[in-house]
Every structure is written in C-alpha cells, then in structure tokens.
Simulated assay, not measured.
Amino acid sequence: MTDDMTPEQISRRTTAAFDAAVGAGRDLGLDVADAKVLYELFSVVVHLAPSPVVARIPVVLPGSTDLDSLARRQQEELDVTRWLADQGVPVTVPSPLVPREPVRRDGFSMTFWAFVEEDRTAETDYVANAATVPDLHAALRSYPGRIPFLSSAEPWFVTEGLERLGERPDLIGPQDLDRARREWRILEPLVSSREAFEKRFPGIDVQTVHGDCPAANIMPTVDGALYADFEMVTSGPVEWDMASLGPEFREAYDRGARSNGMRPLDEDVMRFVDAVGALRTIAFLSLTPHLPDLAGYLLPMVEQWRRTPFAAGLEG
C-alpha cells in the first residue's frame, strides 16, 4: 500500500511549484517581487504580483502523464481560450505579457494567464450558470482547431486508476472494484473511439466542449462573469459538460438551448456520460496518496454510484 503524502511533503511540493513559477516569470521579464499563492489543490495557482499575471502549475497528475502530454493539453487550452476571446466570448485569457505557450521549469509545466480581480461579493447561482452553457457550446461549435475525442475522460487514466486501487482496499472494497472494472469494460470502447460512440448514439453531434463542468467554472469578476478553467477542453457531445449534475441543472441547460437554437440534452447520452463520470470519480481515488483530503470529497460520490444501475443500463 502506498503511503499518503504528509502535510509537510505537500507544503514542500507547493513551495517547489511556487519557486518554479517565480523563476519562470522572472526569466520572462516579469516583476515578481510580491508573488503569492492564490490557490492549491490539483494545481498551484500563483499571482506573480505586482505583474498582472497568474501562473497555473499542475502538481497532482496521473502516474503516466509526462510533461510532453501535459504540455500538449495546456497548449490546447491556451489556443481555445484565445480563440474564444477573439470571438467576443467572455473568458479568462492567456497573459499577453508572455508567449502563449507552456513553460517548463524544475520538473513542472505551467501556463500564464491575465490576472482578473474576482468579485468576492457575488453569489454564485450554478443553476443560472447552467442556462448559459449552451451559449458557450454555440460559440465552440465553430472552433477550427482539432481536439481529441473525449480526451478529458482520460480512459487510460481510468484503466490505470482502477488497476492501482487493487492495492487500496481501504478506499474501495473488492466487490465495488470488481463492479467498476466490469462497467469500464463496457464503457471504455465508447469513450476511446468516436466511431464506436457515434454508432451507439446515432445522430448525436460531436463538437469542441469545455470538458470540466463549465457551470461550476464561471468566474465572477469586477468586470463581469468569465468562463474559466478550460484545462480539460475536449471534443465530444455537449452532454459531457453536464455530467453528474441533477435534473434542475439539465432543465436550465435545455431552456438556454431552446433560446439559442442548440438541441436539448439527450437522455441516453446523459446516462452514458454520468456513468463514465462515476468511474472517473472512482479512479481519482487512486490519487489519494498525492492528495490525502481527496478521499473525503470522493467517497460520498462512490456511495451514490452504488445505488445506480450497472453501467447505467448500457450493457445491452
């Protein structure tokens, strides 16, 4: 069994990421005299103050993710957000003060973003946010870049995570793990192949989507709300962006879709993306050694998964 990182080890990891961001920013000609950490979880986010630049440094990654594959995903995010901004979509943007590309330093790969002041008085209404997601999807339909199909599902990571969890019966018991692996054998082909997905769900269009619950990734700023955190940008059905959200959110999405000519959510595809999302949640338990608090967030979702039909009824 792999030992979980201690608070001291996590602190050293954060410090290393901070130092790498400060050093990279200085090398790029930025004034970083008052740099500070804004946030840390899967990534460490550093405001390179007094420069209006924020560095985001991923620090908790699947074991098989290398810097090359991470940099490719980061470049996709930089390209998509810059393109959206050029179309007039309200979105957080790459910093114009540095080259628009990932920077590697001290074993990290990081991206740099324009600093925006968050409106801390704003009350977040996630259901209202869900009603605006079709607007984002409408804009992304014409994105000219090529994004891999359901790359944010990370099927290789789910396979890897379910394998590693065999060594962590404290996180998931053998009966649950056996069910998860059997479900994944059914779902993985539909995640890994656009052709297989389109055969199983004929008539469902595939396009560029946010990839990571955009309704929860709208940042309130003093200049208005901005779509943010496109680091999981992918191509797939629009349902992917609404996975694991309840009926109220889906009804809000459909209202927004009707208002701008987008199609409503498809129930069969929703069951599919919900099932894949549940298995991704279980696979994320394998990252607990790197982020011990993670289990507390994920285990209630595993309990909910136990009450769902096997593979969301898609085994037929």
Rank of each mutant, 00 (worst) to 15 (best):
E118G: 02
S152G: 09
R100P: 07
P102N: 10
A138R: 13
A114L: 14
S142P: 03
S142A: 15
D106W: 11
S151R: 13
D125K: 02
P148T: 10
F115M: 14
G145A: 01
P102M: 07
G107E: 01
S142Y: 11
R146E: 14
D119H: 03
R120L: 15
D119L: 04
Y126A: 01
R141L: 13
F115E: 13
E117T: 13
F108V: 03
A153V: 00
P134S: 07
P134F: 00
A131Y: 01
T111S: 15
E154G: 08
Y143Q: 00
E118N: 11
R141P: 05
N129R: 04
A153S: 12
R104W: 11
P134W: 07
D125H: 10
E117G: 09
D119K: 02
A128E: 14
F149A: 08
E154T: 12
R146Y: 06
A130Y: 01
E101G: 05
T124V: 15
T121S: 14
P148L: 02
L140I: 01
T121H: 12
P102Q: 02
R104A: 14
R120A: 13
D106L: 03
E123W: 10
A130W: 06
P102A: 05
F115I: 12
A130T: 05
V133M: 01
M110Y: 02
A131G: 12
P99H: 08
D106E: 14
V133T: 06
L136P: 00
A139V: 12
V98W: 08
G107I: 00
N129M: 07
A139Q: 08
E154C: 10
E123P: 11
A122T: 03
L140K: 04
F112D: 04
D125T: 11
L150K: 09
L136N: 08
S152Q: 06
Y126T: 11
D106V: 06
W113H: 11
A122M: 09
P102W: 04
S152A: 13
G145K: 04
I147L: 14
Y143C: 06
V127H: 07
A114Q: 15
S109V: 11
V133C: 05
R104T: 15
D106K: 04
H137T: 09
D106T: 10
R146D: 12
S151P: 05
D106M: 05
A153M: 01
L136C: 06
R100Y: 00
S142L: 10
V98G: 02
E117I: 10
E117D: 14
P148D: 06
A131W: 04
A122L: 03
